[in-house]
């Protein structure tokens, strides 16, 4: 193998560039202020947030894979968390059963959304926006009705404390323990990344989803069941949104109406920074995690420097714009090169 060629293809890989940027910024912030390297108060929560936000990123990625958007990811997360919380509070189910019930609700909501899009032929943007509003009302109504002023389900199923507060260093194999900075919450995120990555890169389902996103008409004419795939994509989106919602509820220690209200923007940042096309047809699953991590490092890093929230958001916006423009500039060069062939 040609080494120069290998290096070239590595450098042109968005994930590689993104990882490099992430590591560089991490070191930069740490050198500026060593408080940033604090394992307990900075790194551990940062990775825990990255785990949850990566999952919501994957939820968005599933919709993006077919060229759709899911503006209701946050609210689907809220409803799933509500379902799980209610199950723990009133049905006293086990942690795992409550989780499955929550995920089932999320998946059903997603599938319903997909079905409405297919049947009504209305743009996914509109349908999910409407869904978001409807669910917002629903969630608030349920919490107020059932819990009165507290507006939260606070019953903690057995094992919840373990998931929210422990890290991998409590697990040792043959004397070697896991790193202290890796929270247990990373486990569901890793599973989600592995499963979704596997689906999109290896399976027929993934190929059919991406075909649908790449060119809907060509997919239809090639005998791909595009309507069913639209529903599948939204089902997956709802399921993952549900998972993220429950992960956040576990992290917070309570199930509230506010869960998911901060999800929408991050849900786009991760996948898009990672290299997922907004137009559909191409996804970056691992990139979603790296992209999410990057945004959190910038946010956390700047806030450790004592920069105010407003400045912080401006900085974040600029970094995003730059990172995304780089991809666009690269695309322009490719286009110019391709034109030479006509």
């Amino acid at each position: 193998m040609n080494v120069a060629h290998k290096i070239k293809s590595l450098v042109s890989d968005q994930r590689f560039v993104l990882s490099l940027l992430t590591v560089a910024l991490f070191i930069f912030f740490g050198l500026k202020n060593s408080a940033f390297f604090n394992a307990d108060f900075v790194i551990y929560p940062l990775i825990r947030d990255a785990a949850t936000l990566s999952v919501i990123g994957l939820a968005q990625l599933c919709a993006l894979s077919i060229g759709h958007l899911n503006l209701a990811v946050g609210r689907m997360a809220a409803v799933s968390a509500l379902a799980a919380g209610a199950a723990y509070q009133y049905l006293h189910v086990s942690l795992l059963l409550g989780l499955f019930m929550g995920l089932f609700v999320g998946a059903s909501l997603g599938a319903l959304t997909g079905w409405i899009i297919v049947k009504s032929q209305v743009n996914a943007f509109i349908v999910t926006l409407a869904m978001d509003f409807a669910l917002l009302g629903f969630v608030t109504y349920i919490y107020v009705t059932f819990t009165g002023a507290t507006t939260a389900f606070t019953t903690k199923p057995a094992g919840m404390e373990f998931w929210r507060n422990t890290s991998w260093h409590q697990y040792c194999v043959a004397g070697v323990c896991g790193p202290k900075i890796f929270p247990m919450m990373l486990v569901p995120a890793i599973i989600a990344i592995a499963v979704i990555g596997f689906i999109f890169s290896k399976t027929r389902l993934g190929r059919e989803l991406l075909s649908t996103g790449s060119n809907l008409r060509a997919a239809k004419l090639s005998g791909i069941p595009v309507d069913r795939r639209v529903i599948t994509a939204h089902l997956m989106s709802g399921l993952l949104a549900g998972l993220a919602g429950i992960m956040l509820a576990f992290t917070n220690g309570s199930f509230t109406a506010a869960i998911g209200s901060q999800f929408m923007l991050p849900s786009f940042l991760g996948p898009v920074l990672g290299g997922t096309l907004l137009a559909g047809g191409s996804v970056a699953v691992l990139g979603t995690f790296i992209g999410t991590l990057l945004t959190l490092i910038i946010r956390q890093g700047l806030s450790v420097q004592g920069i105010g929230l407003e400045t912080l958001n401006i900085a974040l916006g600029l970094v995003l714009l730059t990172a995304l423009s780089l991809g666009q500039i690269q695309k322009m060069f490719t286009a110019i090169r391709m034109r030479g062939r006509t």
């Binding site: 290896k202 399976t203 027929r204 060119n215 060509a218 004419l221 090639s222 791909i224 191409s282």
Partner: peptide, 29 residues
């Protein structure tokens, strides 16, 4: 507009009609 997936490889474009025939276990292509 309708015949090709322009951002897909030639391989994926050819196989789009026969995905069911080139599967292993678990729906893996």
């Amino acid at each position: 507009e309708e015949g090709l997936f322009l951002d897909f490889s030639v391989r994926k474009n050819v196989s789009v009609t026969i995905l069911s025939k080139i599967l292993q276990k678990l729906g893996i292509i």
